[in-house]
Design a protein around this nucleic acid. Sequence first.
DNA 1: CATCCACCGGAACTTAGGGTTC
DNA 2: GAACCCTAAGTTCCGGTGGATG
Length: 329
Amino acid sequence: MDEEIIHNELPLTEVFIPTRLFHRESQLRELERCLKPLLRNRMPENVFLVGPPGTGKTVLARWILESYFRGRSAYINCWKYGSTHEVLKEILLSLEIPIHGREPTSELIKRLERLLRARKILICLDEVDQLKRFDILYILARGNCGLVLISNDYHALLHLDARIRSRLALTEIHFPEYKPEELFDILEDRVQYSFRPGSLPKALIRVTSLLAKGDARIGLEILRRAGRKAEDKGLRKVTLEEIREASKEAKKLRKSYLLSKLNEHQRIIHEILEKRGKMPSGLLYKEYCKLVKHPVVSRAYRNYMQKMVKLGLVKAEGYGRWKRYEIIL
DNA sequence: CATCCACCGGAACTTAGGGTTC
DNA sequence: GAACCCTAAGTTCCGGTGGATG
């Protein structure tokens, strides 16, 4: 196909770190203020980047790590590497400490502590709420390192021991949803590097910036899919139709992606909740037991529910015995 | 107002499974 | 393949909880 529309897909994906950052000036300034002492070998301020998905938290963090702290920082996505052992392993690997992975966790801790005695480094834990255990924070809190923690959950660190929290002394940096005009600037910038000139009318970027509802990730995903669709249809330009289709897909995609993370039992629970709407936890469990031949014990059910809440599929309200669940997606 | 109810969630344990090294 | 190391899911046990109840 010589008339391709997207000539470089990379700027439309999450791995891409742009050179220019739009509409995050104040957050960037604050982040620099907190971290820059490290350049003069002083202790940086620990930071907590928090805000909804697709608001530039990760991009900003990675940008600053790349620009100022290359070789003396580690970026770990806790969704991907969620256990203490995995996190330690990734930290050591990204600082080019040779390890194989057979070492017990205690050995990895020793190595990291030895490293931290030698020099100050920066560690970024993205999606920090996905950590299976938080003891890694305890280890890092007493170490010689700056922390950049990222989450879209304001309560991610709430159940942390109060002493550790005060020890971390996190400076919160908030990332609000992008306004449509702001999103437009971001999308337009990325389009420049990815679409063939003239193949995506500005008006459609504008439409996308409205459809994405403040989430840059979704905006980029819509554009990428729309571009592909237009190519498949043999068009020279993207039209509104492709954007519309892509937008629908992007939303469906997110839900099916999340559903794919559920097991059979969890999916059944999700379906019950979808059919019946808001319902109390105890009743939900009973209904589930009726539907399944070999139901899990109630304690396991409660873990299921926590998982679904964490994934953002389900909302919980109330506490203790009066907990109620409701579908979000 | 004390007690109870019915569920919450932490902790410890079991079982199954995967990867690496020797 | 034995000897380790790890993770993940599920079970059992149990102290905690706060509105409902009489």
